[in-house]
């Protein structure tokens, strides 16, 4: 079955974000290990590309936030508190066991619920806590004179730099996991295709009876679902 899940603005943002992340990772690693710069990027090019990509990333993040609130897409990120642990457990159990047996995804993708419980909680933290923290710490490094003069006896810019490096690394790690988990769709490539066309493809199956209720639909579907 096919449903239209990713509107154009979201797809553009997604791929722009991916491209910027790649540039930022390569240039960021070059700066972090600048004495091995010849392996990746020369220092001055790394600085320039990191700064430019960082600026565009800030703009694209603002675009994402505005787009999310304007379209109501933000509701996808808000988990229902009731029964959250059992839902997380069920999803984790699938990834660690059921997936190898070929069990169906425990939470079928619908227009109202495109994220499984693990994705929901991970994306919420990443997109609304870690990502803005990464951007803010990056801006402090771009304008170091705006950072506090001193924090716990150290130059104030140091905690910013450490946080920026740690967050950058963590989000890069997330990207690796994100790409891998994207291969767990109907076929290895179907989720990648979905993010390009907007149409998500999956096997429809009857969901087993569950103790916890499904989250309320966020809005009426605008596009018809297609049986394939």
């Amino acid at each position: 079955m096919k449903i239209y899940l990713y509107p154009t603005w979201l797809r553009i943002w997604h791929w722009l974000n991916a491209l910027l992340f790649l540039v930022l990772i390569v240039s960021g690693v070059s700066l972090h290990y600048s004495d091995t710069g010849s392996l990746l990027m020369p220092f001055d090019i790394a600085i320039a590309s990191h700064n430019i990509a960082g600026l565009i990333l800030t703009g694209s993040y603002l675009f994402f936030v505005i787009g999310n609130f304007a379209s109501g897409n933000y509701k996808q990120y808000l988990p229902q508190p009731r029964g959250i642990f059992s839902r997380l457990f069920r999803q984790a159990k699938y990834y660690l066991y059921g997936i190898f047996k070929g069990d169906p995804h425990p939470y079928e993708v619908t227009r109202e619920r495109k994220f499984n419980p693990l994705q929901q909680i991970a994306y919420l933290k990443i997109m609304y806590v870690l990502f803005p923290a990464l951007i803010v710490s990056g801006w402090f490094l771009l304008f170091p004179e705006t950072a506090p003069e001193e924090v716990l006896g150290m130059a104030g810019i140091l905690p910013m730099a450490t946080a920026h490096a740690a967050l950058g690394f963590f989000l890069s790690l997330f990207m690796v996991g994100h790409i891998y988990l994207a291969t767990t769709g109907k076929t290895v490539g179907s989720n990648f295709k979905a993010m390009m066309t907007g149409w998500h493809e999956h096997d429809h199956h009857e969901e087993p009876q569950r103790a916890e209720p499904l989250p309320e639909p966020t809005r009426e579907p605008e596009l018809a679902e297609q049986e394939v």
Binding site: L31, H32, Y33, S34, F43, I47, A155, I157, A161, A165
Partner: peptide, 12 residues
């Protein structure tokens, strides 16, 4: 680190 952060030279 005494009073400055220098990209590349002060990594943790």
């Amino acid at each position: 680190l005494n009073d400055a952060y220098i990209i590349g030279s002060t990594r943790n």
